[in-house]
Design a protein around this nucleic acid. Structure first.
Length: 914
DNA sequence: CTGAATGAAAG
DNA sequence: CTTTCATTCAG
């Protein structure tokens, strides 16, 4: 079965999607990256799409899983995005700049320029990027032990439906729970997080995503014989090195072993993150108690997810209204029918539910039972699918979202499936616990929860009083009015499946909020802040609850509030946040501490299951809320800070002095920052990871275009400048910390030139700091740069080399610009240049050294197609001259003329042909 | 979906 | 050695 299925899938995929299936996974950094760049609303759209995809994917996966579990050779699917290499980091960081300069230029062109820059980039600077890339990679690998770089072409998604977006961005990852089962290694981590991403706001996601990853990681690890993963990731003593990231990775590894890394404190957020994840994984395998510990993270993740999931759901509602969603409504109807069917089953399970609560403590149930439940669900799913694929998708989608909350928990594909079904409308919300339980092998809990939820939903439909599952609500909403559905949901929540005892107040409150909640839902993003506050409030409440221990009502209320983002418990506000915070930090820092504390509390309080639950829930919630808050906060801050405006801001900002400053601070401070932060970060944990990554990324030097231009330019002057500069540079370069200072020095040195250039630059500001000179240095040190040829794909290089080499030679250093120019000789030629160029050329040649010219010429002659080349040659010459010119004069001729397009590059051209 | 770049990893 | 894939988005 498996084989056949797979092959089919693959083939299908291959045909349909072609090669690109890869996207499935979420990536680690993507969030960061995105955040950095911009949050914008677009993301939402993407998310939606992604969600859809996910759903589809999930469905497919589920099927697949059912069929074939075992190993997927493809385990790779897990794939988180592979870490970016140095060059990519560089591109990411500078692309915007390039684009700014050359608005017309398409990405390809920009990429070329970037490549040129990269080529020119001072080795030292390059090294920074390289190091960063390495660190990043290490951290990444730690996080995803099993990660394979080139996963076979995966079959990404399956479905044709997926038309949506293969490309979407990472966010869309189609994670497939099912896969997780078979291949615990990678799939797990990625899958869940992905979902989350899709669901939640990117902003919030940041921290959450990290958490999720960690949780996911942990889950997956334990679940599938974590051994593989771990084994894969042996701790590398080497790793220790320096960078926080590195440490992070290291720690994580060590953690897994159970040793506490000595440096953890110092370690950056990333590090902690890794550690946590590792710990989690370890714990996961083992005992329940430990689970609690791990679960803390997981729970957090869950909480986050849940909260996000709720949001998502809400958001979905509105979406349903959208034209595109129309079909969804229909689907929903179908779902309803289905649900009805399900109700019967659920009813049967009701008893189980009751048990479930009890069982909470005893996680362990008979595996058989669990299995049965799962099977049932699965069957349902199948039947549903059969009925209407679309519907299924929809459901899955929803489920996915919901499941996203729990993603981590899915240890096995089967479990995932179940979860997905279950999800959660309320379940996760009110039962943070349940999630934990879910983690446990005992699947029962999950199924039960699910059932409950389903029941509720059914009930609602029927008009029963109690619960209205979120799903139902959604459906209804889609079909009917969002508000009503929301209200129902709220009510249901308030009533609580728990039921329980009381709810009086809670429900009411909730109800009100619901209306507000709706609004919030509609505005998916805006609400975030509110949500946070709410969450905080919630957490507070929870906290209090916890202390008190058994207070179903409160608890419920909390859950309700969570459910409805819009809602904000009035009472909650009053409560102080601090307690929560306090609790959180330790957990993060201590890793297990929080969990332990939770456990203890539970135990203590445990008088009744509810109390326990409530306690746990409260704690978790608190943690979650905290984490969420922190992450959100961080994100927000970042967003403000980095973007100020929005997307473009980053780029623009970068160039501005301010931005520079910022960068500097970041760079210089990075180290310090790590230390200080580390402690603090304990609190933030995942959040910090994001931040750290961001910081690191941000800290990476961003060079102004001018710099590069100059680099080219410098050629002539190079000697002078280079000499002095080079010496300085070299010195400075050594000093790891003081890049900036060095740069400044350079700037100062170069300053005059810069001013000129700055004018050229279109916009941005006057003073750029350029570090540039480095290139000039090339004379002495550059040789290394030149040789690089080996790197990368030979082909490309060869190409490039061909193009550039002449220029380089001429200058003595490599001049990337040349390459660019070559591509667009026409532009380069530009008037002024040509004119002056030729004459100058001669001079220049003489001046510089005929070597360059000679080479160029020589090359030219060789070429058969003279005419064409000829022009090229001429260009090259011109370019060379120009360069010289510039260098000498330090004037930016071309720039002024056409700043945007060809601008700076003028320089080097070469005869690519050769 | 392709491509433009570089580079790490896998086949 | 060659192929994949990572980022980015106009075409």
């Amino acid at each position: 079965m498996k084989g056949s299925t797979r092959s089919k899938e693959r083939s299908a995929e291959g045909e349909e999607s072609g090669k690109r299936p890869k996207r499935k996974c979420l990536q680690w950094h993507p969030l960061l990256a995105k955040k950095l760049l911009d949050f914008s609303e677009e993301e939402e759209d993407e998310d939606e799409e992604e969600d859809i995809d996910k759903v589809q994917l999930l469905g497919a996966d589920g099927l697949e899983q059912d069929v074939g579990e075992a190993e997927d050779a493809e385990s790779p699917e897990q794939r988180a995005r592979r870490p970016m290499n140095a060059f990519l980091l560089f591109c990411k960081r500078h692309r915007s700049l390039v684009r700014q300069e050359h608005p017309r230029l398409d990405n390809r062109g920009a990429t070329k320029i970037l490549a040129d820059w990269w080529a020119v980039l001072d080795p030292k600077e390059k090294q920074k990027y390289t190091d960063m890339a390495k660190e990043y990679k290490d951290a990444f690998m730690k996080a995803n032990p099993g990660y394979k770089w080139c996963p076979t072409t995966n079959k990404p998604v399956k479905s044709p439906t997926s038309t949506v977006n293969p490309r979407k961005k990472l966010w869309a990852c189609p994670s497939e729970p099912s896969r997780d089962l078979p291949s615990p290694k990678k799939a797990k981590t990625e899958a869940m997080p992905q979902l989350n991403f899709g669901m939640a706001d990117p902003t919030q996601m940041g921290g959450l995503s990290m958490l999720l990853l960690a949780g996911e990681h942990a889950l997956s690890t334990p679940e599938a014989s974590s051994g593989t993963c771990r084994s894969d990731v042996p701790e590398s003593p080497d790793s220790r090195q320096k960078s926080p990231l590195f440490q992070f990775a290291e720690i994580s590894s060590s953690t897994s072993h159970s040793d506490a890394p000595p440096k953890q404190c110092e370690a950056s957020a990333l590090f902690q993150f890794a550690e946590i994840s590792s710990n989690t994984s370890q714990l996961g395998g083992a005992e329940p108690v430990k689970r609690c510990g791990k679960s803390a993270l997981f729970q957090l993740a869950e909480m986050c997810l849940a909260s996000e999931g709720l949001k998502v759901e809400e958001s979905k509602l509105p979406r349903a209204k959208e034209p595109g969603c129309g079909r969804i409504r229909e689907l929903e109807r179908g779902k309803e029918e289905r649900e009805i069917k399900m109700e019967k089953r659920e009813d049967a399970n009701l008893q189980k539910e009751a048990e479930f609560e009890k069982s909470t403590k005893d996680n362990v149930r008979d595996p058989k039972d669990v299995r049965n439940v799962e099977v049932l669900q699965v069957d349902d799913m199948k039947s549903i699918k059969i009925e209407d694929p679309k519907e299924i998708k929809k459901e899955e989608f929803e489920e996915d979202q919901k499941s996203g909350l729990f993603p981590d928990f899915s240890y096995s594909a089967s479990s995932k499936i179940i979860i997905s079904d279950v999800p959660p409308r309320k379940g996760h919300v009110y039962h943070p616990h349940g999630i934990m339980i879910i983690d446990d092998p005992t699947a029962l809990n999950k199924p039960e929860k699910l059932k409950k939820k389903k029941k509720k939903s059914k009930m609602d439909r029927h008009g029963n009083d109690k619960s209205t599952p979120k799903k139902t609500c959604k459906k209804r909403q889609s079909s009917e009015s969002d508000i009503e559905s929301v209200i129902y949901t709220i009510e249901a929540v308030a009533k609580g499946d728990w039921g329980i005892e009381k709810l009086g107040e809670a429900p009411r409150k909730k109800v009100r909020p619901s209306s507000s909640g709706k609004g919030s839902l509609l505005d998916a993003k805006p609400p975030k802040k509110k949500v946070k506050s709410r969450e905080k409030k919630m957490s507070k409440e929870k906290f209090s609850d916890t202390t008190k221990e058994s207070r179903p009502p409160d608890f419920i209320s909390l859950s309700a509030s969570k459910n409805t983002p819009g809602e904000v418990p009035e009472g909650l506000k009053a409560e102080p946040l601090t307690p929560t915070e306090d609790a959180l930090p330790p957990s993060l820092s201590g890793q297990a501490k929080p969990e332990d504390s939770d456990c203890h509390r539970k135990i203590e309080a445990c008088g009744s299951r509810k109390s326990e639950r409530s306690c746990k829930g409260a704690l978790y919630k608190t943690l979650v809320s905290e984490g969420m808050l922190t992450s959100l906060r961080a994100n927000v801050d970042r967003g403000k800070r980095s973007s100020g405006k929005g997307n473009s801001s980053d780029h623009e900002g970068c160039w501005n002095d301010e931005s520079w400053t910022f960068n500097q601070s970041g760079t210089s401070g990075s180290k310090k920052f790590k230390k200080t932060k580390t402690k603090e970060e304990s609190l933030l944990g995942s959040t910090k990871l994001d931040e750290e990554f961001e910081r690191k990324f941000n800290s990476l030097p961003q060079y102004s275009p001018v710099t590069f231009d100059r680099k080219y330019v410098p050629v002539p002057r190079k000697k002078k400048r280079t000499g002095s500069l080079s010496s300085e540079l070299t010195k400075t370069s050594k000093g790891s910390g003081d890049k900036w200072s060095n740069r400044q020095l350079f700037l100062d040195a170069i300053h005059p030139t810069e001013a000129i250039f700055s004018e050229d630059k279109n916009t941005t500001e006057p003073a750029y700091k350029v570090k540039n000179a480095t290139p000039s240095i090339s004379n002495t040190s550059e040789p290394t740069a030149m040789q690089e040829p080996l790197v990368g794909s030979q082909k490309r290089k060869a190409r490039k080399t061909k193009i550039t080499h002449l220029v380089r030679t001429a200058d003595g250093r490599v001049s990337p610009a040349g390459g660019t120019l070559d591509d667009k000789p026409k532009e380069h030629l530009p008037r002024s240049l040509l004119k002056a160029a030729e004459p100058d050329c001669n001079e220049e040649c003489a001046h510089h050294g005929g070597a360059e010219a000679a080479e160029t010429r020589s090359s030219t002659p060789d070429m058969p197609a003279v005419s064409a080349f000829f022009s090229l040659t001429a260009l090259a010459e011109v370019a060379a001259m120009e360069n010289v010119h510039r260098g000498q004069r330090a004037t930016p001729l071309t720039h002024d003329g056409q700043p945007n397009e060809m601008p700076q590059a003028p320089v080097l051209i070469s005869c690519a042909d050769q």
